Amino acid sequence: MNQKYKNRNGSITIISLYIFILILTSSTMLLYFATLQTFLSKNQLEKIQSRYLVEDNLNRFIYDKENIEKYIEDRIFRTYRLERIPKGGIYNIKFEEGDKLKDDIQKASFRLEDMNGRKNIILSMDSKYKNINSNIVASGSCINQIFELRSPILTEEKLPYLEKELFLNFMDKIEKENVEYDCKLDRNSMKINTDEDVLLELVSNTPRDNKIFSEKRFVLDSDKNKEKIKFKYQSMILNLKRDKNEAKTLTIGNLDNKDLIKLNGVLYIEGDLVINQNLEFLGLIIINEGDIIINSLTKPKIHGAIYYKGKNIDTDKIDIIYNQDTIYKEGSFLPGFIDIKIDTIKKF
């Protein structure tokens, strides 16, 4: 009897021990899972915060006009004007001392790619929050669509509605802003703003680097003064503005001179363009309420495009060769050339 009692007592002790171990193990596992869940939740929260931070940094950068001008515009200008492309096509962004973005962004860079007939910018940024690294990649078009319509002649009459609206908005912007706009000139470019009739004439053709460059001279003639400006190979940005309501005229060359005038840049004319001499022009010709009058014996060759606002234009006497690279190069001197529109954002 005593033996049976002792055996039952021992069994109860063993069972109690098993139950205790089971409860202890379950409690330990529950504590472990609770701790793990807290850690995972905290880690996930920090990852989310890190991603929000990198997206906030992107928005602060891309939608601040000063940042675009400081860290992107000049690099794109040098790419098109001087063909300066970094190794691998990657433009590293180095933030200035004192810039808050320098503290928040570990690394930033961008590259340019052709996508569906548009030049796109692909911007990459890395940020770190509590030892958690996050990367964001944003992409979208970066050049004003007016410079990528792939047409040698743009006129308001022949454009569909949406493109016509784009064209007229561009012409209004040029008319209002072009004179005062800082187009970041360099030693290979020059800008002339005038409201006087202008004569451009050939001085001589001179060799340079196995090429022939026309040495040209502008004569800005008025009742008050006569100013002469000589130049050779530079991109020339000419803004010929109306004097009050009186349209002005740019005359290129002389009827008696048969030599070739080579010229590159942007001609913006609120009036008429008269071509009296053999001309080869690389760039953009923008006529605002005027006409193009051809008196030369040979067809002028235009490598680039003509933008024309007015009733009609006769281009039968002009040989126009669309050149996208030239449009990018010379268009970069005009206001509104850089127009970044982000349409895709990926976070990693």
Rank of each mutant, 00 (worst) to 15 (best):
P300F: 06
N131P: 00
N120I: 00
A34D: 06
R187G: 01
K258L: 03
Y308M: 08
F218Q: 01
I121N: 05
V179W: 08
L238R: 12
S27V: 12
L45N: 14
K317L: 09
N2H: 01
Y307S: 07
L263E: 10
K191V: 08
K158V: 07
P86C: 14
E113A: 15
Q106P: 00
N205Y: 00
N225A: 06
N169F: 09
V54N: 14
F337W: 12
K241V: 04
E148Y: 04
E227I: 15
Y129C: 02
T326I: 14
I252G: 06
V137D: 06
I14P: 03
Y32K: 00
I294A: 09
R208M: 09
Y233M: 13
Y71F: 12
I72M: 05
K216R: 02
K262P: 01
I287A: 11
I275V: 13
R60A: 10
I252H: 03
K299E: 10
D291H: 09
K317S: 13
P300Y: 06
K230P: 00
G290F: 06
R8F: 06
Q44R: 14
I287D: 06
G271F: 02
I192W: 05
G88I: 01
T13M: 14
Y71V: 11
I174D: 05
Y161K: 15
F33C: 00
N133V: 05
G253Y: 02
N120S: 07
M190V: 03
E96Y: 06
L282V: 08
P86A: 15
I143W: 03
D172F: 13
K128R: 09
I285G: 12
K173G: 06
K87V: 13
S11F: 12
N264V: 06
E66T: 15
S204T: 14
F110P: 07
L263V: 08
P207A: 11
Y322G: 07
L154T: 10
E83P: 03
N116M: 10
M29L: 15
D99Y: 03
K158F: 12
F20D: 01
Y18G: 12
I327H: 09
L284I: 15
E196S: 15
Y63C: 03
R51W: 01
F213M: 13
Q145L: 13
L53T: 10
A108V: 08
L45M: 13
N210Y: 11
R242Q: 10
D74T: 13
I19E: 02
S141Y: 06
L185G: 02
E280D: 02
N120F: 15
D74W: 05
M236R: 08
E280I: 05
K226M: 01
I292R: 10
Y91W: 14
N169Q: 13
E83N: 15
K173I: 11
K42P: 00
D56V: 04
I192H: 07
L30G: 04
F77M: 09
G265T: 10
I294W: 06
N59E: 08
L202S: 02
L202C: 01
Q49G: 13
N135V: 06
K42R: 15
E246G: 00
D314Y: 09
T326C: 03
I269Q: 04
S127I: 05
D316L: 14
N7D: 02
K329T: 14
N178H: 07
Q37V: 00
G117E: 04
I252M: 05
E97V: 03
T79H: 14
L263Q: 10
K65Q: 11
V203A: 01
L36V: 01
D103L: 11
G117P: 03
L36S: 02
L123M: 14
R242V: 03
G265D: 07
Y18H: 04
E330N: 15
